[in-house]
Design a protein around this nucleic acid. Structure first.
Length: 502
RNA sequence: GCCGCUAUCGUCUAGGGGUUAGGACGGGUGGUUCUCAGCCACCAAACCGGGGUUCGAAUCCCCGUAGCGGUACCA
C-alpha cells in the first residue's frame, strides 16, 4: 500500500528545531496563548530554529477571519514574529488548515484502507446513551466501538436510512508510550482510550487528526503547547503510528490560572485575558513578555528582569516547571512601570501621546512638544500603565476638574475660620506669584518658602492648599513643576477661581 | 463517575538527605519629601498529611488528601 506521507509536500530539511504555534481563530489571543507563543518563539530562536504560525481552524463554525487577524496583530505587537505560516506563507503549503482538506482526505483514505479507521454510524442520541451508561457503570470509555466491524448489509441499511458516517480511529490494544520533555515519560493503557472521531459526519476532519498530520508534514520537531492537550497526545501518537508518520517531541507547559486556581479562559474571564486589551490599557510588550515568561519558567534565584535577547539566550525547556501558575496582575503592574521608567523622556512622551489624544486632551497636531515632555518629566516614575497619564495630567490641559471633596475638607478646612485662613494664604501666594521677577522653579520656591517661614505657616498646609487650587487633587508631581508648566497666566486664573469656590 | 497531571511564604519561584529554606511581587513599619509615587532600612509570611528508608527527610519511596485539566462529530 502506498503511504500518503511518502509524497512530501514540504521541501524542508530541518537542520535544527522547527516549532509551531497553532491557535484556533475563535477569539482574541489570550494570555495563555501569548505564553505558548513566547515559549515556542524563545525555544526556536535559542536553537536558531524556525518558528511557525499555523492556523488550526477546522472548527469552521466558530473560526473567523477577523479573529485570525487579531491574533496576527497581537503577536506582532508582542514582537513574536514568525518565520513561516500565518499571512507569510512558506515552503510547506498553506498554513491554514481549512485550506488543507484534500491533504487530510488522502490520509483518511489511507487509514480506512489499511483498516486503522472505520465508519461509525452512531446518532447523537445513541452516543448520549452510550455515555450515560458508561458513566453509570463507572467505565472509562464513553464510546464502546460498536460499529467497528459492521456487516455490509448493516452499512447498506444505514446508508439507505440516509445516515452520514463519521470516521473513527481504531485504538490498538498495546500500551502507548508518551515522552514529554517537561513531564517525563509514561505508558498509557489503551483501555483508557477510545476510538476517537477523526472526521465529522459533515466531512470535516478533527483536531487530533489534522494537528498530528500537519506537525509531521511541516516537519515540526517539538510540539510545545499547554497541558490541556496532554490527554490528546496518546491519541495523536496512535494516528501518527497508523499513518507511518514521524512523531515530534512533546513539551506540555503548565496552565496559566486565575486567582482562584482555575484555568484562564476566554469563556470564563472575557477580555480580561485578551492580550490586545492590555495593549489598549497601556501595558508595554516588554512587560507582558517578561511577565508571562516567568509564569512557569525561571532562570535562577535572583533575576526577574529579562530582555527578549536575554531570554533567547537563557530560555530552556528544562527550567519550565510542572505546576500551574497564577496570573498576578500586581506583578505585571510592577514590571510595566519598570519598563515605562526605562524609557527616556522622549520615548515615554511618544508612548503617552496616543492616550492623551484618545481622551481628547490633545489633538492630532500635538502642539508644544517641549511642554509635553516637561509634563512627562514632572510625572516621573508615577505611571503604572501608559493610560495612567490621563488621570494624572488632565489638569494640565483643562481647568474643568472637580476639587476632590476629601482633599478640600482636609486642606482647605471644614470650618469658616479655616477656610478664611486658606483664602488668605491663596491670596498671598497669588500676589507673590504675580510679582515674581522670573517665573522659574528656583525663584518661586524661594519666594514661597520665604513667605511660609515669615508667616510661620506650615509648608505642607500652604502647598497642599495651592495644589488643590491648581489641580483639584491632594497628590501629584512636585508642585513647583506644576506651577511652572501651567504658566503664570493660568496659575493666576486658577487661584481666584479656587478662592471663589471656597 | 472515569482518565491524567500537580503539590515550597497570599502570588511567581530558587534550592534540595544535615541551610537561620534564598529572591521577587504584594503587604506592614520607620526614614527622606510640599503631597503621592519613588528611594533607603527593617518586619511578618512557606516545604499538604501520614507512613516508610536513613544517624538524619522539606528533599528519596509508598499511601492518602486536595487542587486542577480532560472526559465533544471544540481546539
Amino acid at each position: 500500500m502506498k503511504n500518503v506521507a511518502d509524497t512530501p509536500r514540504c521541501a524542508v530539511t530541518p537542520e535544527t528545531v522547527r516549532v509551531r504555534m497553532a491557535p484556533s481563530p475563535t477569539g482574541y489571543l489570550h494570555i495563555g496563548g501569548a505564553r505558548t507563543a513566547l515559549f515556542n518563539y524563545l525555544f526556536a530562536k535559542h536553537h536558531n530554529g524556525t518558528f511557525i504560525l499555523r492556523i488550526d481552524n477546522t472548527d469552521t463554525a466558530r473560526s473567523t477571519d477577523a479573529s485570525m487577524h487579531e491574533i496576527y496583530t497581537a503577536l506582532k505587537w508582542l514582537g513574536l514574529e514568525w518565520d513561516e505560516g500565518g499571512d507569510k506563507g512558506g515552503p510547506c503549503g498553506s498554513y491554514v488548515q481549512s485550506e488543507r482538506k484534500s491533504i487530510y482526505d488522502g490520509y483518511v483514505a489511507q487509514l480506512l484502507e489499511s483498516g486503522n479507521a472505520y465508519h461509525c454510524y452512531c446518532t447523537p442520541e445513541e452516543l448520549e446513551e452510550i455515555r450515560k451508561e458508561a458513566r453509570a457503570n463507572k467505565q472509562t470509555r464513553s464510546y464502546d466501538g460498536r460499529y467497528r466491524d459492521l456487516t455490509p448489509e448493516a452499512v447498506q441499511r444505514f446508508v439507505a436510512e440516509g445516515r452520514k458516517p463519521a470516521v473513527r480511529i481504531k485504538i490498538p490494544d498495546t500500551p502507548i508510550r508518551v515522552d514529554d520533555l517537561i513531564l517525563g515519560s509514561r505508558n498509557i493503557d489503551p483501555a483508557t482510550l477510545e476510538d476517537e472521531v477523526i472526521v465529522r459526519s459533515n466531512g470535516m476532519p478533527n483536531y487530533n487528526l489534522t494537528s498530528i498530520i500537519d506537525d509531521a508534514e511541516m516537519q515540526i520537531t517539538h510540539v510545545i503547547r499547554g497541558t490541556e492537550h496532554l490527554n490528546n497526545t496518546p491519541k495523536q501518537i496512535v494516528i501518527a503510528n497508523a499513518l507511518g508518520l514521524k512523531v515530534p517531541q512533546f513539551a506540555h507547559i503548565p496552565l496559566v490560572l486565575d486567582s482562584g486556581g482555575r484555568k484562564m479562559s476566554k469563556r470564563h474571564h472575557g477580555d480580561l485575558v485578551a492580550v490586545n486589551r492590555y495593549r489598549e490599557q497601556g501595558y508595554l510588550p516588554e512587560a507582558m513578555l517578561n511577565f508571562v515568561v516567568r509564569l512557569g519558567w525561571s532562570y535562577d534565584d535572583k533575576q526577574e528582569i529579562f530582555s527578549v535577547d536575554e531570554l533567547i539566550e537563557k530560555f530552556d525547556l528544562e527550567r519550565v516547571g510542572k505546576s500551574g501558575s497564577v496570573f498576578d496582575i500586581k506583578k505585571l503592574e510592577w514590571l510595566n512601570s519598570h519598563y515605562i521608567n526605562q524609557l527616556d523622556i522622549a520615548a515615554r512622551t511618544d508612548a503617552v501621546i496616543p492616550f492623551w489624544q484618545e481622551e481628547g486632551l490633545l489633538n492630532n497636531s500635538v502642539g508644544d512638544r517641549d511642554w509635553l515632555e516637561g509634563i512627562v518629566e514632572a510625572v516621573g516614575e508615577r505611571l503604572t500603565t501608559l493610560q495612567d497619564i490621563v488621570p494624572q495630567t488632565s489638569y494640565f490641559f483643562t481647568d474643568a476638574f472637580e476639587y476632590e471633596p476629601k482633599a478640600v475638607k482636609k486642606w482647605w478646612g471644614n470650618s469658616e475660620e479655616k477656610q478664611e485662613r486658606t483664602r488668605e494664604i491663596l491670596t498671598n501666594i497669588s500676589q507673590i506669584l504675580e510679582e515674581i521677577p522670573t517665573f522659574d522653579i528656583e525663584t518661586i520656591e524661594a519666594a514661597i518658602w520665604k513667605y511660609t517661614d515669615e508667616k510661620d505657616i506650615k509648608r505642607v498646609a500652604a502647598m497642599q492648599a495651592l495644589r488643590i487650587a491648581l489641580t483639584g487633587a491632594s497628590f501629584g508631581p512636585s508642585l513647583f513643576d506644576i506651577v511652572v508648566l501651567l504658566g503664570k497666566d493660568e496659575v493666576l486664573k486658577r487661584i481666584p477661581k479656587a478662592i471663589a469656590h471656597l
